[in-house]
Protein backbone atom coordinates (compact mmCIF):
# COMPACT_ATOMS: atom_id res chain seq x y z
CA UNK A 1 0.00 0.00 0.00
CA UNK A 2 1.32 3.44 -0.97
CA UNK A 3 2.58 5.81 1.71
CA UNK A 4 0.93 8.78 0.02
CA UNK A 5 -2.08 10.31 1.76
CA UNK A 6 -5.18 9.89 -0.34
CA UNK A 7 -6.73 13.28 -0.91
CA UNK A 8 -9.90 14.30 -2.68
CA UNK A 9 -8.98 15.53 -6.14
CA UNK A 10 -10.54 18.63 -7.73
CA UNK A 11 -13.33 16.60 -9.31
CA UNK A 12 -14.17 14.82 -6.07
CA UNK A 13 -14.25 18.10 -4.19
CA UNK A 14 -16.65 19.56 -6.76
CA UNK A 15 -18.84 16.48 -6.41
CA UNK A 16 -18.78 16.89 -2.62
CA UNK A 17 -19.96 20.50 -2.99
CA UNK A 18 -22.75 19.41 -5.30
CA UNK A 19 -23.83 16.55 -3.05
CA UNK A 20 -23.95 18.96 -0.11
CA UNK A 21 -25.97 21.47 -2.15
CA UNK A 22 -28.36 18.74 -3.31
CA UNK A 23 -28.83 17.36 0.21
CA UNK A 24 -29.37 20.86 1.54
CA UNK A 25 -32.06 21.58 -1.02
CA UNK A 26 -33.78 18.20 -0.56
CA UNK A 27 -33.76 18.54 3.24
CA UNK A 28 -35.16 22.06 2.91
CA UNK A 29 -37.89 20.80 0.58
CA UNK A 30 -38.80 18.05 3.02
CA UNK A 31 -38.98 20.50 5.91
CA UNK A 32 -41.01 22.96 3.85
CA UNK A 33 -43.51 20.24 2.93
CA UNK A 34 -43.86 19.28 6.57
CA UNK A 35 -44.13 22.87 7.82
CA UNK A 36 -46.79 23.51 5.20
CA UNK A 37 -48.65 20.39 6.25
CA UNK A 38 -48.60 21.50 9.90
CA UNK A 39 -49.75 25.01 9.00
CA UNK A 40 -46.55 26.73 10.11
CA UNK A 41 -46.04 27.80 6.48
CA UNK A 42 -49.06 29.30 4.69
CA UNK A 43 -50.21 28.24 1.20
CA UNK A 44 -48.95 31.50 -0.31
CA UNK A 45 -45.53 31.23 1.32
CA UNK A 46 -45.32 27.59 0.33
CA UNK A 47 -46.01 28.39 -3.32
CA UNK A 48 -43.42 31.15 -3.29
CA UNK A 49 -40.73 28.97 -1.72
CA UNK A 50 -41.17 25.55 -3.25
CA UNK A 51 -40.23 26.47 -6.82
CA UNK A 52 -36.76 27.89 -6.18
CA UNK A 53 -36.00 25.00 -3.83
CA UNK A 54 -36.96 22.42 -6.43
CA UNK A 55 -34.85 24.20 -9.01
CA UNK A 56 -31.87 24.18 -6.64
CA UNK A 57 -32.24 20.46 -5.98
CA UNK A 58 -32.74 19.71 -9.66
CA UNK A 59 -29.73 21.82 -10.64
CA UNK A 60 -27.46 19.94 -8.24
CA UNK A 61 -28.91 16.59 -9.32
CA UNK A 62 -28.39 17.44 -12.95
CA UNK A 63 -24.75 18.29 -12.42
CA UNK A 64 -24.24 15.12 -10.40
CA UNK A 65 -25.82 12.81 -12.97
CA UNK A 66 -23.45 11.11 -15.39
CA UNK A 67 -23.66 12.62 -18.88
CA UNK A 68 -26.63 11.37 -20.87
CA UNK A 69 -28.66 10.31 -17.83
CA UNK A 70 -32.15 11.76 -17.41
CA UNK A 71 -32.95 13.88 -14.38
CA UNK A 72 -36.29 12.78 -13.04
CA UNK A 73 -36.69 15.41 -10.31
CA UNK A 74 -39.64 17.56 -11.17
CA UNK A 75 -38.60 21.10 -11.97
CA UNK A 76 -41.01 23.84 -11.13
CA UNK A 77 -41.24 27.42 -12.18
CA UNK A 78 -42.64 28.65 -8.90
CA UNK A 79 -46.24 27.63 -9.59
CA UNK A 80 -46.02 24.48 -7.48
CA UNK A 81 -49.20 23.19 -5.90
CA UNK A 82 -49.30 22.50 -2.20
CA UNK A 83 -48.44 18.84 -1.70
CA UNK A 84 -50.80 17.00 0.59
CA UNK A 85 -53.62 18.35 2.68
CA UNK A 86 -53.04 20.72 5.52
CA UNK A 87 -53.75 19.27 8.93
CA UNK A 88 -54.63 22.57 10.56
Amino acid sequence: MSDALEELDVGERRRLELVEARDRALAALKELEFDHRTGTVSDDDYRALVGPLRREAAGALQELEPEGAEVTEETNDGQGRPAGERTS
Binding site: A28, E31, D35, V41, D44, A48, L49
Partner: peptide, 8 residues
Amino acid sequence: AWRRASLR
Protein backbone atom coordinates in the same frame (compact mmCIF):
# COMPACT_ATOMS: atom_id res chain seq x y z
CA ALA B 1 -40.41 29.82 7.38
CA TRP B 2 -36.86 29.51 6.12
CA ARG B 3 -35.88 32.03 3.44
CA ARG B 4 -38.85 34.41 3.83
CA ALA B 5 -42.31 34.70 5.28
CA SER B 6 -45.13 37.07 4.38
CA LEU B 7 -46.57 39.43 6.98
CA ARG B 8 -50.04 37.99 6.39
